[in-house]
Write a protein that binds this DNA or RNA. Sequence first.
RNA 1: GUGGACGUAGCUCAGCUGGUAGAGCACCCGGUUGUGGUCCGGGAUGUCGCGGGUUCGAGCCCCGUCGUUCACCCCA
Length: 416
Amino acid sequence: MAGVKIQAPKGVSEYVPPRSKLFEFVRECLINPARMAGYQLMELPVFEDTELFTRGVGESTDVVSKEMYTFTDRGDRSITLRPEGTAGAMRAVIEHGLDRGQLPVKIWYSGAYFRAERPQAGRYRQFYQVGIEAIGLDDPAIDAEVIAIADAGFKAIGLKKYRLDITSLGDAHSRAAHRVDLLKYIQGLDLDEATVARAALNPLRLFDDKREEMRKAMAAAPLLMDYLSQESREHFEKVTSYLDALGIAYELNPRMVRGLDYYTGTTFEFVHELLGAQSGIGGGGRYDGLMAELGGQELSGIGFGLGVDRALLAAEAEGVLAPEGFLSDLFIIPLGASAMVKVLELAQELRAAAKSVEIAFGDRSLKAAMKAADKSGARYVIVIGEEELNSKSVELKNMNSGVSVSVTIDSLVNAL
RNA sequence: GUGGACGUAGCUCAGCUGGUAGAGCACCCGGUUGUGGUCCGGGAUGUCGCGGGUUCGAGCCCCGUCGUUCACCCCA
């Protein structure tokens, strides 16, 4: 009778209790620093016009050329499930004219993203990110702040075993000059077909090849850092000096490669030590041409995307537990049908007073209800039956110490 | 997209050279009157991922498929 079992689509990440508690904690940690710095929420669609990504992210990127979930809707429009957040955020900023108001525009967002890749540890087809964008400011101090906000998020989670890689991709002139020399260098190498194809799309990608022989082959390749214009170099030096002042450790990594075409200038990546092949827990950088490319004002911008799934994996690898603040304050056990009404009322009242309350539902034995109270992790438990309804007082039991004290029902709020 | 490993109760796994399945944990009930965590007793649970093949007979062998996982590619 029962049909074939329906499973979640391949490679999606989903979180159910008890692990979802840690997910909630991790995501909150990553969002909060942005709020504390005056960034405001932007709630965006998960699907967009396909062209937004081909134009914004770049057709030469793997993300766009082979990892997008694209479909045609009923109006014959080409729609794509967002593979990243920045392009959509820029589109919304332009569409709502935020770029014509006070600058910088500082926003944060969080949600699901989609990439049709082969799943792997820390790599999912639907995954979660927290991102921020600061638009309309060239000040290197904002670069440092953006990086500091990401770092604060990881620290809030309790992560320790990660490092920050940072580099500068310079401006268009710097990159063009470097590209000529890099291509010349690459032509002198004996490469396989696939690698030649990659080099044609974006020669910088070869710096990221994990194969030992390629690492050796690229060891003497010209570095973009050596081609930076005076202006780019000064900007970058200020960014790093600010990070020094903030006590944020970083590693200059001139071979760092980012997968999205819009990056310019300062770029960075947070890498966790315990994560395996998919070790990047967050990354970002400047995208000084993106706004104009998408039809907006000629404004520079900088932002990041932090991987909630990977940060969670990192937290687990480091033994971080969800804090106790996620447990209930009180667990109420009604005894007998007449007590339930009072219990529902009481719970409503206490919750309105910001106390978290759980109720033992169902007609189960007191012993079973106590066990449920124990497992819920609630701090206190009370039983409400005939006696309590008459006396208007309850035994407030501390589940940790096992000690209980008698308090009136009216004074419960204060006792918790 | 390419390559390797794996797929047995909710979870972690065992299952000898093929003879129609087991453990631990979790879960439920109980250990006499309304208070959990330990202990004791009892209990439910599986189309052995799915489909096909070989065989008298397959969880164990073969093929396919779906999924998981690890790496490459790529990236959060």
